[in-house]
């Protein structure tokens, strides 16, 4: 946080805060409160970062999202989506999209983290939006697991399954599996609502609540997660259990029955 307050004294900070204050009038201020931090954060990246980000943007993004991030028929406007959205979409490899489809899937990122940061800085400069969360915000230390679980089941499980194994949405869209997803990216997804997913701004799910949700998810769905009962069979409930009972359970029973009923070896007639 010390670093953050230092950044507030950056020459650009005043301008950014002013811009923000103008944009977020009245009640909207509350809705975009985290952007305060966002702008301060972004501001620390020098104007050079914004400039380099702009160049990267022109090459890799502008064809769909339009010059100045105003959006085209092929891609939505990026004004006001914030650095967090860029960090999520580019950092998880969803953007740039390989081909048009129901949903851009997660893939190997095309840009390095440094380039992603530059792109984020550029997009953040287009309009106020949520900033990339700090490690303090998303790290599971000191989180309330039970609260995270309750919130996960209220806000997330309907699409992502009770332990975040993912699930189907309409017309080929889907809520992805959250296993192995970076804590930062989970946090950013809640902030920004990528693609079909709705956003959960801090007014609806507070920063502390988001931290709890991330912590709960890491407890129940990661390589280290405990599955006391044994192999979890995908963790998607009765369908995989039923399939297993049929194929392996009944399969084992029938194999045993065949052995029990089979004729034993006869002596060779001499």
């Amino acid at each position: 946080m010390k670093k953050l307050s230092a950044r507030r004294r950056h020459p650009l900070a005043a301008l950014v805060v002013l811009l923000f204050a103008l944009a977020a009038t009245g009640g909207l201020y509350t809705a975009f409160a985290p952007a305060d931090e966002a702008k301060a954060n972004q501001a620390s990246s020098s104007s050079l970062a914004i400039k380099e980000g702009k160049e990267l943007y022109a090459v890799g993004c502008a064809s769909c999202h339009g010059t100045g991030g105003k959006g085209t028929t092929d891609g939505p406007s990026l004004v006001g989506v914030g650095a967090a959205a860029v960090d999520f979409q580019v950092g998880t490899g969803r953007m740039p999209a390989a081909q048009p489809g129901a949903q851009a899937p997660k893939k190997k990122p095309k840009y390095t983290q440094a380039e992603t940061d530059q792109l984020a800085a550029y997009v953040a400069s287009l309009g106020p939006g949520p900033s990339v969360p700090t490690k303090d915000q998303y790290s599971p230390n000191g989180a309330d697991l039970a609260n995270g679980g309750e919130l996960f089941r209220t806000n997330c499980a309907q699409c992502h399954n009770f332990t975040g194994e993912g699930g189907a949405l309409t017309e080929g869209k889907y809520a992805p599996d959250l296993g192995g997803v970076d804590e930062k990216h989970i946090y950013e997804a809640m902030q920004t609502g990528p693609q079909a997913m709705p956003s959960f701004p801090d007014t609806l799910v507070t920063a502390k609540d988001k931290k709890d949700i991330v912590a709960y998810l890491k407890t129940v769905n990661s390589d280290e997660a405990h599955t006391p009962g044994g192999y979890k069979l995908g963790g998607t409930g009765p369908v995989s259990e039923g399939l297993f009972a049929w194929v392996f359970g009944l399969g084992a029973m029938i194999a045993t029955a065949v052995w029990v009923a089979a004729r034993s070896t006869k002596a060779k007639k001499s």
Partner: peptide
């Protein structure tokens, strides 16, 4: 899976086979 609440739901809501 969590305790039942009428205002919550999880996807993959299926009965046993």
């Amino acid at each position: 899976i969590g305790p039942y609440r009428p205002d919550q739901v999880s996807t993959n809501a299926q009965p046993d086979w």
